[in-house]
Design a protein around this nucleic acid. Structure first.
Lengths: 200, 200
DNA sequence: CAGAGTACGTACCGATCGGTAACATTGTCA
DNA sequence: TGACAATGTTACCGATCGGTACGTACTCTG
């Protein structure tokens, strides 16, 4: 992460930190929870307890900050997606289901805000916008990764199974936001298992 | 512009029309294609060839216009969702699959922009915002309707099947935007058929 | 201690946002 | 003809948008 500290001899690990770090963390939180277009740079710096020039010293534009937020989101997503690998070594089906089950729980709980990358694609439909590009790249990587997992679990039409699962996953992201607690994402686990088992 | 005077209830169904109607049509198009937050009232009236006061004579605020757009969208959606009923009378499964197949085709084509209601939920995560409310109400209605259809086709756990299908549908909406042509929505039809058949 | 460099804040910019007031113009119908 | 409703015209409002010129405080080094 960003603990390249060479100078903070103090125990700065709680609140103070560098301005750029506070901006990044605050932007991450606000962009994710409230939406990117809904949040102005002014609000970010206010909540971060810094000032605008500090933001523009670290990022050359708001779009750059947005792109950085999305790259950060993608990184965290990848970690959380691959995390179950350790618990289920050599068991791609188990790994995938572990992620899916945790997703189902989060997505059918109150206050869920879906996937920041998916949301970004919708907020920025213009393919030329950096936010759109970063988010779409991430989605392509996910699709590919899903295909590999399905292939390595010996599915008949691995790509088709992967796409079906991707639809269920993306569906969970967005319907979690529309339905809140007890939303349709509760069906994610069983549906995925049915599709996987039918393809093995 | 060029059309000489003759605005009464003549055959004018092309361009002139009432200002309020042009505003509504233009807003529909722009909100859907570009996103709601991305479009200002100025751009709407410019493209509609009218002026701002005309907009504010027809709608008391931009939020009102947004809500009206979403109600309009919901109306059209319901029509397109129920349309297959005529072609498949007394066959809920056939009706549902007919809608799904058409959705799969649209959602895996270039330039698809998903569901305006789903997009609105993401653009306006605040449950107090009218846009959020209209969109969420529509989604609840869809979930209910899906449940009825699954029940009337004799599914074992109709609500669970309905939720699974809803995940696939919403997944198609959003991933259509991220992947464009040849996206995962092409798997919608087969996945839905597998889940339905497994539940009958 | 001097000076350099880093890190940050104060105050401001022009543009655009959603929204409005006041008035002129038009076409329709009686 | 004359009244009315609908629309356009122009100019404006305060707030907020993304972005910046410039001054200041700290700290590290010599």
């Amino acid at each position: 992460m960003s603990t390249r500290s060479k100078s903070p001899p103090t125990t700065a690990a709680d609140t103070p930190r560098r301005a750029a770090d506070r901006i990044r963390d605050t932007a991450f939180d606000l962009f994710y929870r409230e939406g990117i277009r809904a949040i102005g740079v002014e609000e970010i710096v206010n909540r971060a307890g810094v000032t605008k020039p500090s933001l523009y010293r670290a990022y050359e534009s708001k779009d750059e900050l947005i792109a950085d937020y999305l790259r950060d989101y993608d990184e965290r997503f990848c970690r959380s997606f691959e995390a179950p690998a350790a618990e289920h070594p050599g068991d791609p089906k188990g790994q995938l289901l572990a992620y899916l089950d945790r997703l189902a729980a989060r997505a059918s709980a109150e206050g869920y805000r879906g996937c920041g990358l998916t949301n970004a694609v919708i907020e920025y439909p213009d393919p030329a916008h950096p936010a759109h590009q970063v988010a779409v790249d991430s989605k392509h990587a996910l699709r590919k990764r899903l295909g590999e997992m399905c292939r390595s679990m010996g599915a008949r039409d691995a790509d088709e199974l992967a796409d079906s699962l991707l639809l269920l996953i993306e569906g969970s992201y967005v319907s979690g936001q529309a339905f809140g607690e007890g939303g349709p994402a509760r069906a994610l686990g069983v549906a995925a298992r049915k599709l996987i088992d039918a393809a093995l």
